[in-house]
């Protein structure tokens, strides 16, 4: 029988230059402190020796164009490439210098996909979608120079309305936990993104976060109180700039009823940064 051997969630622009340019020295220092914590979390993750690492993250209109936006998508196939963006600016630069290709855990990815469809989750599948910073900035920070285990990238549509509901994302996490429990693999799961930033996805409101909202959801996760999180509405997530909590909700479903341990929480103003771990072993 398999099991989830490690679970964590964290902000996903682990790139000091981005915050240095857009927030200043305070932002740079804060994300550098977060990076140190995530590296330490990576030592725990590495010691857990997972056979596969499920990464739940979102696309920033880098991979899926408006021609088709999957609500929930499993990356299948044998390997996955890093996104390449010519003339990259802003957070796309976090990808520079990272390896171009990563292995995919094909059997686990196929199991999540196939058993998901059998269970009523109409997941999309992609054989070719590359990974942007939402996946690779955390993975590369967690693992550093250590080889990365085979990945199962899983996309949640966080930014193009209508998004999947918080409750549905939590249910997807329960599904992933079932597949892990009934398979032969030791599985690690991470979710990335957030906390609140870019409220209403409005250019006019870039620079604002919702500290009260973020403190509230972190407290809920510390308490293992997931009911109010699954009740979060699209309106609440949109207005507070918490779109990427949908990724975290998948993780919460996978680890529930475990409680979170806060490894980092920082109020930057532009965004609130966080890294949490769950004791699942």
């Amino acid at each position: 029988m398999g099991r989830i051997v490690y679970a964590a969630a964290m902000s996903h622009v682990l790139y000091p230059n981005y915050y240095g340019q857009n927030v200043g020295p305070h932002g740079r220092r804060m994300v550098e402190a977060l990076i140190d914590v995530v590296r330490d979390m990576g030592r725990t993750l590495t010691a857990a020796a997972p056979d596969a690492l499920v990464v739940v993250a979102d696309d920033h209109l880098n991979v899926f164009s408006f021609d088709a936006v999957p609500a929930l998508c499993v990356r299948v196939g044998r390997s996955v490439n890093r996104m390449v963006q010519d003339g990259a600016i802003e957070f796309d630069r976090a990808l520079e210098g990272l390896p171009e290709r990563y292995p995919v855990h094909e059997d686990l990815a196929n199991s999540i996909l196939e058993r998901g469809l059998q269970a009523g989750f109409d997941f999309a599948a992609s054989w070719s979608a590359p990974l942007d910073h939402a996946f690779l900035s955390p993975v590369s920070t967690l693992y550093g120079a250590t080889p990365v285990p085979p990945l199962v990238p899983f996309w949640v549509n966080c930014f193009v309305a209508p998004q999947p509901t918080a409750q549905r994302c939590f249910a997807v996490g329960r599904h992933i936990a079932r597949v892990a429990a009934e398979g032969p693999w030791n599985v690690a799961v991470i979710a990335t993104g957030g906390l609140s930033h870019f409220p209403e996805l409005s250019l006019a409101r870039v620079g604002q976060s919702d500290v009260a909202f973020d403190r509230r959801v972190v407290k809920w996760m510390e308490a293992g109180n997931y009911e109010p999180m699954t009740a979060l509405t699209a309106k609440e997530l949109h207005e507070s700039g918490s779109h990427e909590l949908l990724n975290w909700l998948v993780l919460l479903g996978a680890v529930s009823p475990a409680r979170a341990r806060v490894r980092f929480f920082g109020e930057m103003g532009r965004i609130d940064l966080a890294a949490l771990e769950w004791d699942v072993a």
């Binding site: 920033h60 209109l61 996805l201």
Partner: peptide, 15 residues
């Protein structure tokens, strides 16, 4: 227009 596209177009994006 998508915020994430508007801020990340090489040579034109930014915020």
């Amino acid at each position: 227009g998508s915020l994430h596209l508007l801020i990340s177009i090489p040579g034109l994006g930014g915020h």
